[in-house]
């Protein structure tokens, strides 16, 4: 049996260690998480507006979307959407005469994770908007504000402090859900890197513990930043005991 390289060596940067690989995995994880979160937020904003102001048909469709997505495991959804999405896109491109296209794994991961996140964002934002005292919105309308001005000056600042606990939770969830991409094979992000490194070196404990520690660091740092942000947003509110 060959002697195993030591711990500092195997995690070092350069050709002898996996430090740089892990770092680029972390970068990809953060990129996918940020993009998927942003997409989810966009879908959630539209979905919440549709659920509150939309026609009965829109509300029915959105109810179906949020219920379905939240009742099926993320992993299964990601698999279905990943394969169905790439097959449908290829079929579409072929029908249009462009020939078969290869779907970018990272882009597909972002879209799929964003679609799943969107359902949760919709519910969080809808709850927060509906928790605003209706009188405040009516007052804004009575002043003659346009819908966009009303949203920017009243709805958004009043809603954000209520939504921020749910939104922070979703951010923490999406950073961890990026690990599911490793199962589908969408890109070499942190979990996949750790898996490959562990498989190559047979040092499973080392690499999975390292990956776990990196994810934990992301979570703890995010919590710090988010709680500071929440305090900033709540600065005008009465202190709750």
């Amino acid at each position: 049996m060959a002697t195993k390289p030591g711990l500092p060596e195997i995690l070092s940067f350069g050709d002898t260690g996996y430090g740089d690989e892990l770092l680029s995995g972390l970068a990809l994880t953060l990129f996918i998480a940020v993009m998927a979160y942003a997409l989810g937020l966009l879908i959630g904003m539209i979905g919440a507006m549709g659920k509150i102001h939309g026609s009965p048909l829109t509300q029915r469709i959105l109810l179906g979307y949020t219920t379905l997505v939240r009742a099926v495991p993320e992993l299964v959804l990601i698999l279905i959407l990943y394969f169905a999405g790439s097959t449908a896109l290829s079929a579409l491109f072929e029908a249009l005469g462009f020939g078969a296209v290869a779907i970018n794994g990272i882009a597909a991961s972002i879209v799929v994770l964003g679609f799943v996140q969107g359902a949760y964002h919709t519910e969080v934002l809808r709850g927060a908007i509906q928790a605003i005292p209706i009188g405040q919105l009516e007052a804004a309308r009575a002043y003659g504000m346009s819908p966009i001005l009303e949203f920017r000056r009243v709805t958004l600042p009043a809603m954000l402090p209520l939504a921020i606990p749910g939104l922070s939770n979703l951010w923490l969830i999406v950073t961890k859900d990026t690990a599911l991409i490793a199962v589908v094979g969408g890109g070499v992000e942190l979990a996949k890197t750790a898996q490959q490194a562990a498989g190559n070196t047979k040092m499973y404990m080392t690499f999975f513990l390292t990956a776990g520690a990196i994810y934990l660091t992301i979570t703890l740092l995010s919590q710090q930043v988010l709680s500071r942000f929440e305090r900033h947003l709540r600065r005008g509110q009465r202190l709750q005991t």
């Binding site: 859900d177 690990a179 499973y204 999975f208 776990g212 994810y215």
Partner: peptide, 18 residues
């Protein structure tokens, strides 16, 4: 709560096995 369940499962299955 701060680490992905997938990494925990891998750690327990492959890590303990190794």
């Amino acid at each position: 709560r701060g680490t992905p369940l997938l990494v925990q499962i891998w750690l327990i299955y492959y890590g303990v096995g190794s």
